[in-house]
């Protein structure tokens, strides 16, 4: 199975024939995570030692749902009634409705704080194997709550956390000096990669080091281009 197999699932969600998979900024990163990186098993959703993937950027979750369906977290029949009255799948994901969804998100700027708390909670229980991955968008970084989490995680060397920032340059006022520098100045290890290059994304995620949280800035096409 490759990311191309997700395409028909995406079409069922969007009912949209003209959008190529590249219209979904998160698709390739999500695929790499679920196909190569995350230690998660749809048959053992409550495994306390599973890796956690937190979609902080909860809007536009079509690619997320398609990847979860492709990986067997829920039946692909669910994809045909997006945001319907009885559908578990809405335009923002609900962890109480969708197997495999770790946080309910939608309002921007909540995932990284929850991710930091999750990493701290795992550490306090001696669970040092699981990693906590949080996916954000470059515009989402406008929310100050992220910067509370970035500063704290960096200062305390919370190395179970990996943030992935999808950069499609949609932040209204941009990030002069680059996104990675916002994290690096607080002590994170940071790498910027081509968000469409699966090997580059996987390699970037693999560069996490002991003693520091890690961020992968995944650059994709500029939004609207």
């Amino acid at each position: 199975m490759t990311v191309l197999d997700v395409e028909p699932l995406l079409r069922r969600l969007t009912g949209d024939e003209k959008h190529a998979p590249s219209a979904f900024s998160t698709l390739d990163v999500l695929w790499v995570l679920y196909d190569r990186v995350l230690r998660v098993d749809p048959r053992r959703l409550d495994d306390p030692d599973r890796d956690r993937f937190l979609l902080s950027k909860g809007h536009g979750p079509a690619a997320y749902y398609a990847v979860l369906a492709a990986k067997g977290f829920f039946p692909d029949g669910w994809l045909d009634d997006l945001a319907g009255a009885d559908s578990p799948l809405g335009h923002h994901p609900d962890r109480l409705r969708v197997p495999g969804v770790e946080i309910s998100s939608g309002s921007l700027g909540h995932g990284l704080g929850l991710g930091v708390g999750t990493a701290l909670g795992l550490r306090a229980q001696g669970r040092l194997e699981p990693r906590v991955y949080v996916l954000l968008g470059d515009a989402e970084l406008d929310e100050g709550s992220n910067h509370e989490a970035i500063a704290y995680a960096g200062a305390t060397g919370l190395d179970a956390v990996t943030a992935i920032v999808i950069d499609n340059r949609s932040a209204s006022h941009g990030w002069p000096g680059g996104i990675a520098s916002r994290f690096a100045v607080h002590g994170w290890t940071a790498v910027t990669v081509d968000g469409r290059d699966h090997d580059a994304v996987a390699a970037g995620l693999g560069q996490a080091r002991e003693g520091a949280p890690h961020v992968v800035v995944a650059v994709v096409e500029t939004k609207g281009s």
Partner: peptide
């Protein structure tokens, strides 16, 4: 590991509490 001071960051304080609870702790 169970007494955490996040600094003057109240949004993070609640986010961290939420994350701790997701792992089964009582924050």
């Amino acid at each position: 590991d169970r007494i955490l001071n996040v600094g003057i960051r109240e949004q993070l304080m609640i986010g961290v509490a939420g994350g701790l609870a997701l792992t089964g702790l009582r924050p």
